[in-house]
Design a protein around this nucleic acid. Sequence first.
DNA 1: CCTACTACACTTGTATGGTAGTATGGTAGT
DNA 2: ACTACCATACTACCATACAAGTGTAGTAGG
Lengths: 225, 225
Amino acid sequence: MDLSQTLQSVSTRDAVYRVLKSQILQLELPPGTGISEKEISIKFNVSRTPVRESFVRLAQEGLLEVYPQRGTVVSLIDSVLVEEARFMREHLERAVIRLACAAFPANSLSSMKRNLAMQRVCIEEQDYKSMFQLDEEFHHMIFEGCSKKNTWDVVQQIKVHLNRSRMLRLAADYDWEYLYQQHLLLYEAIEQQDVQHGDSLMREHMELTIADQTMLKQKYPHYYK
Amino acid sequence: MDLSQTLQSVSTRDAVYRVLKSQILQLELPPGTGISEKEISIKFNVSRTPVRESFVRLAQEGLLEVYPQRGTVVSLIDSVLVEEARFMREHLERAVIRLACAAFPANSLSSMKRNLAMQRVCIEEQDYKSMFQLDEEFHHMIFEGCSKKNTWDVVQQIKVHLNRSRMLRLAADYDWEYLYQQHLLLYEAIEQQDVQHGDSLMREHMELTIADQTMLKQKYPHYYK
DNA sequence: CCTACTACACTTGTATGGTAGTATGGTAGT
DNA sequence: ACTACCATACTACCATACAAGTGTAGTAGG
């Protein structure tokens, strides 16, 4: 693998970090995989230093487990942590949607309207990759409209732990139409300033991922702790 | 400075990390202070490597800002981030206290009762350092009783950004008696399973730190961004 | 006197060698 | 055949050397 393209703009460390993180979240490096500094440094054709520093960051995010003098493995998925991550995200998103339903800038609202229109198109064209991106941006816009950028960043950190189990239940089996309907209703709640409705809608929306955690754990036992 | 004592149990990197983090949060390294890897490595009598890896972690937590080839400074306090941290903590603590008021294990409840008794003693003895610790443990127990250990860890991460501004308004000027009364009421809400009361109590409790943020920013302008 | 350039003293970034601890497979001894 | 031991090949950890970029002070030239 060659990182030279990425290297132009950012440091070697950041490039290694991003590639590794992506590979872990995409399950290209499955949970439990043993990796070593030397192995990665050879693979990426860099020295061990930037690799080590990437390991430090990834370990802090809970994606790697480093055992001194023994080795490093990609963290197993912790189903307790996954549920708590969902819990945290639910309550933060609900707190923000309540703010949004109380007051929301007009230009952010119209941005969301455009986003919804693009979601409509993506579903009809079955472009689920773009839809995934639009879903992210939709939620991001709610936080931005409420001036809660840092909160969004924290949610992103938390979501890391939801990501891999979401990846397991292949992206295809999502009911995107239902998802779109929920987004539409959330938008309307903000527009009509209906705090209670927005709150219950978001709670419902966040409970989508609560299911089949045990099912996944049974299906992929070696990926779970 | 010598780290040899700490070195027995943990790695040099962790020792450096802990000391630096402590010094930053205690304002012994005030916001805006310029520090270099070499300077710290000489001071601690270690090589640059573990210092660098500590810097990576601290930068990720937002306590350091690293400018490549130029230098590293202790992050200025971001008042927007402080308020958002308070916002996040409030909603997570409220979500958990509602769980606690719905169902709470008896042994955790009695642990809290013992903690409250010790708080009573500390206030009378004006031992505010221990009181600070007991305050932490009190909230921790609520999370533990609800099996939300990971959520507590995230709250701890978030609280880092509250810590320094709380340190500025010297610990002494806290109304510990009022704090104790709030804790007592929170305990009773859990005991009596009064969800609504617990929620509003915690909201009030979390709003304690909302004040005088602008005052602090005026008093210590060079510490703020 | 003022400007522009250069040399130098910094900084962080990267590469590499050596150290200590761990796991494993093979071998000698029972 | 089985167990205990030892050599070996790993691992992450730490120290050090080198590279590359930045700011500044001092100096030469106008």
